[in-house]
Amino acid sequence: MISLTSPVKTRAHGWPAGLKLAGLCAATVGLFFIQNLAVHAGILCVIVAIYASAGPLFFKTGLRQLRLIWVFIAIVAIWHIWTGDIITGGTVILRLVSALALANLVTMTTRLTDMIDVVRVLTAPLARLGLNPAALEMAIALVIRLTPVLAQKGGNLTQAWRARSPRKPTWQILLPFTVLALDDADHVAEALRARGGFTPMKED
């Protein structure tokens, strides 16, 4: 499965993921404390400039993320034009776009492996509560590996449906689909056990 990291290399690709994430958290919180429309406009301009500096392909991909919130932008715009409170409406919209753009920037400039390293560091304290770090890493790998396989099987089920019906498949296809996931879980568990599970073998 392909991650959302941008193939366009930027300097940010090399920065430590942990720092980028911490910075993102601070920046997002900060955005919610700023009420001034002009300041928000300035911030968004800076963010747009950062996207543009990475080239047209990077910029276009970033722009496509706006589809996640265009409905909300429309609702807020209509709402605030209706109530006459344009300034607050503008602030909300600019803040939404900036928050989304910053978060997306981190995703586009951070490799999957770097993200998983951060997860490893952040979940290390949970080992005391019983979380097995090897199990978590295996679980992540399993989902990445098995999602396309399961989707393919689901596709076969929808094809089998369409072979006997002119209509699109209904929710009933979820019964055999869930059974397939349960069967796959059995096979995977078997394979894991055959390879020694999660307890590393002791050296003699």
Binding site: Q172, P176, L180
Partner: peptide
């Protein structure tokens, strides 16, 4: 013409577990 397809042709796939829909 999917309606005609149902009349003209049936297709049997490899794996019944990825083909049988109902319990």
């Amino acid at each position: 013409d999917r309606k005609q397809a149902l009349i003209d042709v049936g297709i049997l796939f490899q794996n019944p577990d990825q083909q049988i829909i109902f319990p």
